[in-house]
Amino acid sequence: MLREFETTFILQPEITDEGVQTVCARVDQILERSGAIRLLYDDDGKRRLAYEIKHFQKGHYLTVHYFDTGKAVPEVERALRLDESVLRFLTVRVADEVGDVEERKKQAAEEEKIRAERAKERAEIEAREAREREANEALRLGGAADEDSDESEDEDER
């Protein structure tokens, strides 16, 4: 009986894009080997954790959806447990029985497109924020000497 599962896992926030890719590739490989059908990846990007895990305040959230009879689940979980960049994972059974596999696949493909776009937007925003942060930092470091003059200027403007 085919069931739909989703496994969410949290990666270290410092992971590079390639690192994410390798983890995904490994999961893909396992799914393929145990005869599961992968539907889509859902990249939630970096989010603040509600509590620290291994002293990390943030985490990179990824979710993979797949059809399986239940064989692939322990395999995937084992791989995630062994991977040091994975902070946490959770597998949830989404649907007990999948009626129309092809239909669901199509749906998933469309969903993935939307998700990918959203992820791209988010990545851009993140990148911009990072740049701004860096710029601010540089300003603070560089402008520490003439900070007083800056402030007085501001007051004049008002």
Binding site: R47, A50, Y51, R88, L90, V92
Partner: peptide, 14 residues
Amino acid sequence: KRARQLALMPYAPS
């Protein structure tokens, strides 16, 4: 309970 496991929600105040 699931959200807590994934650190989306807290177990206790920070």
